[in-house]
Design a protein around this nucleic acid. Sequence first.
DNA 1: CCGCCGATCTTT
DNA 2: AAGATCGGCGGG
Length: 225
Amino acid sequence: MVRSAGAETALTREFFAGDARDVAGALVGMVLVRPDGRKARLVEVEAYLGTEDPGSHAFRGPTPRARIMFGPCGRLYVYFSYGVHWCANVVCGPEGTASAVLLRAAQPIGAVPAMRQARWHGQRQLRDRDLCRGPGRLCEAFGITGADNGLDLTAPTGGLWLVDDGAGAGGEIVATPRVGLSRGADPLWRYVVAGSPWASAGPTSPAGRGRPEGPVPHRPPSRLS
DNA sequence: CCGCCGATCTTT
DNA sequence: AAGATCGGCGGG
């Protein structure tokens, strides 16, 4: 799809209505936005397929934690990881199913000082590269917490949304195994810009070395192709 | 850059 | 007891 440079189109509910793997591939290159100007281009995401995916929090059904994923698509699913960090997903697919896309890493492109402040731990200044490199860091840079669980990303009133600015992913998108799973680690449902320094790991970065990878079987969501 | 470990809450 | 993680530390 061709869009004039600079124009920003908010992603609609329809964008998230399809298969989480297709949504994940299409999300790479899209921009996460806060009303205060914080913006970051997604370079790494993972698809989780719900009740049929042993790696998904929804594998055991609609538990209190996984409840949001069974609702409408386009909403934020936030969970607390290792008792320390928040991680953010976008719910995908029809209501009643429970797939989602985990936002793993992004390139900061707007209000970078605000992100640095949000990530400030009282020690040394963080490099730009470390602001959004990883799901926990991305959430911290954008101030996403459990209070945002269920937030509607397709409504600007939520204070957090996603746009297509027409710039694209800026490189080839490849599929690799998902990170940090003991079950469901085989399928190539992690989508990352090959060689991106903003990714938490990649085919050309140490953590991604030697891992299998493959082409992205990407079918763009029908109404946006 | 790599590997190890602890933090500290949720879920099983 | 393990987990969709991260930062600090030590070593190469």
